[in-house]
Design a protein around this nucleic acid. Structure first.
Lengths: 236, 236
DNA sequence: GCCGGGCAGGTTGTCGACAATCGTACAAGC
DNA sequence: GCTTGTACGATTGTCGACAACCTGCCCGGC
């Protein structure tokens, strides 16, 4: 079928059908990015008329986008009160990382089942390089961005649309945790080492090592965020 | 603060604040249930005016509800074409069960970390009893309902809101698979045995056994649905 | 006989306006 | 002084209508 139509073999390139996504989806992406960036701190009320005017759309599509974000758990809706950015407490932080561990572990195992992991490992390596550059420059935001990219690439490489969708929301919530608590000074060297080990385990196909490193990585992140000393000897 | 107000110690019982949920949420639940029940088979177009009239609401709230379901992945939206119930192919079935395995494994591990698993085990046992009754009566729908409940209770017992939310969507998709393929004759005895073993592993606190049984349970379900013989000797 | 243009029908996308509800501030009464 | 009742402002929830768009069919031309 491909290329056999009436186009006489003209190469169409990546000229895919410009399926302009719905306005609600675009608006949802925009607001999601704003929440992730910390433009809307947790707890702030999002007035509909104000947001609609700022985005240049009417209240209809904006409300649809809001419902999407509510379904994702990023926003909290109170009837006749308004929409608020969800603020995450310590239990939420643990929950986010619990869910992330579940999703990313499954994604990594899926990736390990694939024969050719070269491209995926290359993208992870690129993300690590970005992290290194950000750490060298002392740019905490860029470091968090690259960290985000690393885990997003990991899940995307699994090829599972559902894990990918879940991961997207969870990563946004992760950024909310970081932005809220102003975690500006992570010990970047440890962070880099953990990511490198994770990549190496994936490249080598060592499922056992990968699982162990991933779980430790998540546990470390929770400890860092909640500012409690990591448990010295936890069997689980 | 609690009980120290001007109510003079009067017991308020479970008089919770009647936070009537938004209309969009109610509509979304209704349509989600309809999709799960198989009222709207995969691929059917959902006309907005028709649905709105049937539910007694306007198109505004209905569209908001639809956006929710699109975000959950249950509906597929095509611009200026309409909303369609997503139809799941073999890859989707595998993906649903991959994600379910990840979520339910994490939930079960969380449950195992709790000291008192008595109530949770009791609820799982109740779900198994319902399955037994349905199997004895030859009621395939009730059997699927009870199966659904078992897994929903398992995840709910973990106490993780995010795992719970993910699980809800995944279980609906599971029902879509079953309804679409008219899987009316599952070997209920095997199914019951698997659930009983899972419950027993949870009650006994055997994480290793639980993981093994759960993964086998999911793999069996995929095999049953896709109607392929289960792989005789798969190392992974 | 086959292809392109045009038209009609129906659907979704978007908008503005009205009604219901909530929070707040102020005044009145005990 | 504290509580209670009331009015106001602001926001959300809902609705109806118009415009844009896609699909399918019909017709004229080659």
């Amino acid at each position: 079928m491909a290329g056999a139509g009436g186009l006489s073999g003209i190469r169409m390139g990546d000229l895919e059908p410009i399926d302009r996504r719905s306005t609600a989806a675009i608006v949802a992406d925009r607001i999601r990015a704003a929440i992730m960036r910390g433009t809307f701190p947790p707890g702030t009320q999002l007035g509909e008329v104000d947001l609609a005017a700022r985005l240049g759309v009417s209240r209809g599509p904006l409300r649809e986008a809001m419902q999407r974000l509510v379904a994702e758990g990023l926003l909290r809706s109170e009837r006749h009160r308004g929409l608020f950015v969800r603020d995450l407490d310590a239990a939420d932080v643990r929950d986010v990382y619990t869910a992330r561990t579940a999703v990313e572990r499954a994604a990594a195992l899926l990736l390990l089942a694939e024969p050719d992991r070269g491209p995926a490992v290359a993208r992870l390596t690129a993300a690590i390089a970005a992290m290194e550059a950000a750490a060298a420059a002392g740019d905490a935001v860029a470091l968090a961005d690259a960290d985000h990219d690393f885990h997003a690439e990991l899940v995307a490489a699994s090829g599972s649309p559902r894990l990918h969708r879940m991961s997207r929301t969870l990563l946004v919530e992760t950024r909310m945790c970081l932005a809220a608590l102003q975690q500006t000074a992570p010990p970047s060297e440890d962070l880099l080492a953990e990511h490198r080990t994770l990549r190496d385990a994936l490249a080598a196909g060592d499922a056992e090592l990968m699982t162990r490193v991933l779980e430790a990585h998540m546990a470390d992140a929770v400890s860092r965020i909640l500012d409690v000393a990591p448990p010295p000897a936890l069997p689980a």
